[in-house]
Write a protein that binds this DNA or RNA. Structure first.
Lengths: 349, 349
DNA sequence: CAACAAAGTGTGGTCGATAACATTTTTTTC
DNA sequence: GAAAAAAATGTTATCGACCACACTTTGTTG
């Protein structure tokens, strides 16, 4: 597994050529005769030369600045774990000259997002990790970054891959399928299921739709007479939730399982009519209210989107790209963790 | 978040003293007047000096050797993912002068383990990552390592923490509870459950017992008349499994859920009598046979012990310890992943 | 108060990669 | 074939931490 390490000086000696020329070959800086070029290339291949990243790094001695742009955790606790991920990555790469700044935008305000984008651009960072919550605006920002030679990584929401841009997140369609499977496991087949959309923010619409599609895809594949209906809660106000759900169950008394496509599952606590008080529910995200609902039995399973890890990886990818010339994966899909009241603890923090 | 970086030369200039003296203070090498010592200490604290790890590393320019000692994946496929984890860590830290060798022992042979231990010691590595499958022998080996100033990390099985030794694994008791919760979710309360131990290897006994305890702990806490019985399959031979299970169900026809405490859950495929063919089963580990059983419906849930990540972290911890003077955590408990037929794919590889 | 020991301090080479600059070799031009 | 231009190659300082060694200051002894 291990093998001898060669330095540029070693290679130069082997080739009977100065290390300056070796370096020129390695970095394709030209001004090398093809005779020398061939000789050195052959040796490099032969010994599978791996440059000493430590030395390279020291010589470069550049500090890189990264900006992380994400929704304000104070406005939506879903984002709070991201801070830990960012801090962890920051601690790890600080010693390698990567400096990380953070900016929060209001997830309900495009204006706030645009303003923070301008702030980030003004600081001319080497890389930006951000959550493209608002599609059009995010696209524009990505364009700005590209024009300014800023390397990008996005997480949580899909924007686009390619060039200087990477995506870290989850397969939402599949996570909908998983919710379907879980309810199927709990209830058996030939049932009527409901997809409940609870969110006031339009920018989550695509997420919710993808999840619903996956869910319906799973139940469609069963071909056992199962049925899926959809209900959208107009407001996240808890009193409205109760009324709305009672209304819904009057129209669909035979629904025997719920899939809540957002992190608002906890709103069902006390909002379900007595007839359906103990109906199985699958929801999303390990926010404290949901964990309480998991413990109390209102929610049966949560699907964990691992925001901490998403942010951590986004920062890590860019840091390693700048510090160690590592390639950034175009797309990284995280595992879709299934959480119940007994295993949630390991996914916190 | 980011802050200015100071070098030893900076500090020396600030204190009006040469960098040699600054270095002596930093490393407590003595031979410094208390006047100079105070002055430098104050400045160090003031600016929160963080040495440039890159430069430090380059100067040291030492290559560290690690040995990973684990059961042969050819004898038990459970261990195969560890190799990927080791390779990933190896690729990552090779550039920082960490070389990794691997040795396999036969998980059914203490002699093989001892022989490999001797081989490892003969190579005098700086650190060893190993699976302490055989408790007494592992303890002896750990002692040998300590005497030879070899830093240790263990994974999968618990040995002991402290001094130069770290443990990476899972909370087995809790994973038993999780299995209990899953079956409870699938079946509801007031049921009779069975713990099935399927393994020929005595060294897994402690693992199996811990899981059973957790499982019983969960069902005991329900206080709803639930009952748990235990059944041990003497051999892993599939024909015996069928006979043994038929026997078992004759004695306990009212058992409505199974918890298999090892990775041998797939052996139940076709081994359950018609009366109990579709009884819910929770098992362990993402080996291919189990995934097939998950797809076919013989198994409902698997608990993932993440051997890949365990090995990866073991190697990473030691590598970072040697390369970057990072502290090794005494104990790292990994999340206990719940797997069904829809989300297993993300946990492979 | 020499002479010497001990304590404190400063200097410069090293790790390996990098690139600016200096030097040598080859090619082109009249 | 000599001068000039172009191409190829060699040399060396640098990044920051580290430490052996050289050096200077202080303290001690006869």
């Amino acid at each position: 597994m291990s093998k001898k390490k060669y330095t540029i000086a070693d290679i130069a000696a082997m080739a009977g050529i100065s290390k300056g020329t070796v370096d020129r070959v390695i970095h394709k800086r030209g001004k090398v005769s093809k005779k020398a070029h061939e000789k050195i290339t052959r040796i490099l291949k032969e010994i599978d030369y791996q440059p000493n990243l430590v030395a390279r790094n020291l010589k470069k001695n550049k500090t890189y600045t990264l900006y992380v742009l994400l929704p304000d955790p104070a406005k939506d606790p879903y984002w709070a774990p991201c801070l830990e991920g960012i801090t962890a990555a920051s601690d790890e790469f600080q010693a390698f000259g990567v400096m990380i700044d953070t900016a929060f935008f209001d997830p309900s305000s495009i204006k706030s997002f645009n303003s923070k984008c301008r702030q980030v651009l003004k600081n001319k960072p080497d890389g930006v990790v951000f959550v493209p919550l608002f599609y059009q605006e995010a696209l524009a920002f990505a364009g700005d970054c590209e024009r300014n030679d800023i390397t990008l990584a996005t997480f949580n929401s899909y924007l686009q891959e390619g060039q200087a841009s990477s995506f870290i997140g989850q397969d939402l369609h599949q996570s909908g399928r998983i919710a379907g499977k879980l309810l199927h496991q709990l209830l058996g087949g030939d049932r009527k299921m409901a997809v409940i959309h609870v969110d006031e923010a339009f920018q989550n619409a695509i997420h919710m739709q993808e999840k619903e599609k996956g869910f319906r895809d799973y139940y469609g594949g069963l071909n056992d007479g199962s049925e899926v209906v959809t209900h959208t809660l107009p407001h996240k106000d808890i009193r409205n939730a109760g009324k709305s759900m009672q209304h819904f169950f009057k129209a669909h008394p035979d629904v025997s399982g719920l899939f809540v496509t957002t992190s608002k599952g906890y709103l069902l606590e006390g909002a379900l009519p007595g007839t359906h008080a103990h109906i199985p529910v699958v929801g999303y995200d390990l926010i404290t209210q949901n964990i309480d609902a998991l413990k109390s039995g209102t929610l049966d399973f949560l699907i964990h989107q691992n925001p901490r890890q998403q942010a951590y990886l986004g920062v890590s990818y860019l840091s390693e790209y700048f510090a160690f010339d590592k390639q950034i994966p175009d797309r990284k899909l995280l595992p879709i963790d299934i959480i119940n009241s007994e295993n949630y603890i390991h996914y916190l923090q």
